[in-house]
Nucleic acid binder design. Structure first.
Lengths: 245, 245
DNA sequence: GCGACTTGTTAATCTAAATCATTAATCGAA
DNA sequence: TTCGATTAATGATTTAGATTAACAAGTCGC
């Protein structure tokens, strides 16, 4: 499976010096590319799932469905993200993943990946590093839901989406095509749709963003950052990448 | 640093077959034991921190402080947990860690640990596995804050604390000494203290728990589980532990 | 054993956001 | 192009939970 131009390569390059051997090792264990249609469920809540899926293109959500019918979105999945984390480390999944658009990703069974880690230990560390990023993003989500006001939450979410899209080359300096409906954002931020809509308008009224259709322009990203108390942090590089063995 | 009886050993044993060599390898890289007093700040928000600290005894919280003075607790740290995750993978910490009781833990610099990973790849995987557990617990926290009612949240929190304490031998089958004040639980669950208090009484009124002082008895843990839609999941064991190299 | 501080409990008020209900606009597919 | 479905925008009502305040009960240190 050739990795050229794959969003995960862009992403990994920011964490480690990915040399030709590394790329070859990954290409060797990646099994196949999969395309699924919009609205397809990739992971079923309650079922086991034991693969890492590296998203190349398209959008998805990881969410938990409650008996009441309420849905909490845990993570907005963008190109460069890994589907199958952390569920692949457990006996079954307690949440679902659904494609929001047509989606293409590259699959690698978790056992195959761990086998590689025994031969090339840096990949075990890569996994830890990706996991740390994931945990940090979840932590931010917790702060958002627990102690930020709705307008701060939305400001924070927009900044985060922009930063993550920008990282993989899918956003301009101060604007981006928002790939998520208000329903999705409401379920991510723990708000009702009407309220999210009102908060969105508030951001526009305060000249912090402007948007038509789904193009968001961060008219005043400094102001947004202040409102949301947004503080981007940088991953430390993985140390000691001289190869042993 | 001898590991015998250390809570992290109990915890790791559940994830992998920890043989004598593994224990020796860990003991070799663990640098020292540290005891700190109640209320000491272990990690300062905004500062870098590059160590893994394995908690042996005592309790702590990881939290974010906002400008408004509001505090969101991200995680209740118990014996067997790792302080320094995920902050050690970033250039600086965006949250603080503070001891709630006198606390003892064993320190290992992150660089020392990663060096070990190159020699003994299973430890890189261990780190990923711990990270996955961390992420899963954060995910549950997100669901709690976003889409569960206060009483469901508290029920869920109590069940989770019980399970985690039980894992390291610090809880009885249906009861445990709650080491956290209502202030702490309120800040974890995104509630005000008076409201948390009311919800606590509601749980008692509905005969789901009984408590005096800080001893919690789960009088009806099945009912609690139903209320909270609590679903414990099991970590899959780390595969392929035959040693290479 | 005494005072100081921390923790737990209770009540009254008030606001933010959910809910419910409807309409308008867009998009996709036939 | 039109129809149906999804998404966005409003308004009216209601309620959950924050806020504030005051007090009781523990607990700690001296």
């Amino acid at each position: 499976m050739p990795l050229n131009g794959h969003a995960i390569k862009t992403r990994l390059t920011r964490v480690m010096k990915l040399n030709a051997d590394d790329v070859a090792a990954l290409e060797a264990i990646f099994e196949r590319d999969v395309c699924v249609k919009k609205r397809q469920e990739l992971i079923i809540q309650g079922s086991p799932f034991r693969s890492l899926c590296f998203v190349q293109d398209g959008y998805a959500i990881r969410y938990r469905l409650l008996r009441s019918g309420k849905r909490q979105i845990l993570k907005l999945i963008l190109p460069g993200d890994v589907i199958g984390f952390p569920v692949s480390f457990f006996d079954r999944s307690t949440y679902a993943v659904e494609a929001l658009t047509d989606l293409t990703y590259t699959v690698c069974g978790i056992d195959r990946y761990t086998r590689l880690c025994y031969e090339q230990p840096q990949f075990g560390l890569v996994l830890s590093w990706l996991a740390a990023q994931e945990a940090a993003s979840y932590a931010e989500h917790i702060v958002n839901l627990g102690r930020r006001t709705p307008i701060e939450r939305l400001a924070h979410l927009l900044l985060e989406i922009h930063a993550r899209l920008f990282q993989v080359g899918l956003a301009q300096e101060t604007s981006f095509a928002l790939p998520f409906s208000q329903q999705v954002m409401a379920d991510a931020l723990g708000l009702s749709v009407p309220h999210l809509n009102r908060v969105m308008q508030q951001l526009r009224a305060e000249q912090l963003i402007s948007s038509n259709a789904r193009l968001i322009v961060l008219s005043d990203s400094a102001g947004l950052g202040r409102l949301a108390q947004y503080q981007p942090i940088n991953l430390a590089p993985i140390p000691l990448l001289e190869r042993h063995c």
